[in-house]
Amino acid sequence: MTDLTVNNQTLSSSVQTQEQRQQKVRRLLLAPSLITILIIGVLPLSVVLVYSFLEPGAFGGVKWNFSTNAYVQLFFEADIFDGSLSFTTAYLEIFWRSISLAVMATLGCVLVGFPTAYFIATQPPERRNIFLFLITIPFWTNLLIRTYAMLLILRDEGVINIGLQNIGIIDQAIPLLYTEFAVSLGLIYSFLPFMVLPIYSSMEKFDFRLLEAGFDLYANRLKVLWRIIIPIAKPGIAAGCILVFIPSLGAYITPEVLGGGKSMMIGNLIYSQFGAARNWPFGAAIALILMAVVLISLMVYMRRTGDKGGLSHG
């Protein structure tokens, strides 16, 4: 006992300088991850930025001449008849489709994921773990394979249609596959655990006995849900939305497999510029614009959730 106190005293005398030094040393622990991401994640993006201001090379690649054509092309195209430049909505439509599908997927994930996370969080601790376990298991199977399995379920001669026909609810197969519905479903399915897990972890620590006070105040389940539970789950919902929205926006294999490939998504558009279209600068420009869309929506989103948070406190 005495030893400890002595030790403590000596410590506290030199504690300030040491603390500071230690703090600085500790910051170095950030270095490996920062260096890795800066070199492998951020630096290549600057290459994309440079490429977007160059001219396309013959049959792919780039020519090292400065040009802003890639950005002009996004909004104006040479008319198919006379070659004059006119405003085009083609790319905007593709962006719009991708964004709306990503929003739909995100909403779908919230609608299914929030109740699921809530349900898990309100289970006894033992069962919670089992449920979490169950949520993550499908993840261990390759997403491509799972997407193909969805194909088997949704197609005209798939599990759902054959099942419904056998029960006698329908006589003819409902075309489920190769629709935007199938794509949204596929995206929701792919990213659902990314929604459930953060929401769960934001609610896990909550002492649900506190709800009693809520019932005294609001006396209505819906109000309790709205005023107490959702605000608590909010950070989780926010994190989940980001984790679902961004990959959905850039997704290009799921839409192709389940959507049938008749309409382009941003991902396909970018990919095709580096491939068949042989216009790398344009591909780079669209990629950057896509990133800008992501960043802007993140900023808007954060500001909005931030404001709401402020309101609910005040």
Partner: peptide, 22 residues
């Protein structure tokens, strides 16, 4: 923000950028 950067960039963009860079 930097640590979260890989989450903020759609995969196809990262893929193309990394290809050129590597």
């Amino acid at each position: 923000t930097i640590i979260n950067q890989p989450l903020m960039v759609p995969e196809i963009v990262t893929a193309v950028a990394t290809l050129i860079f590597f």
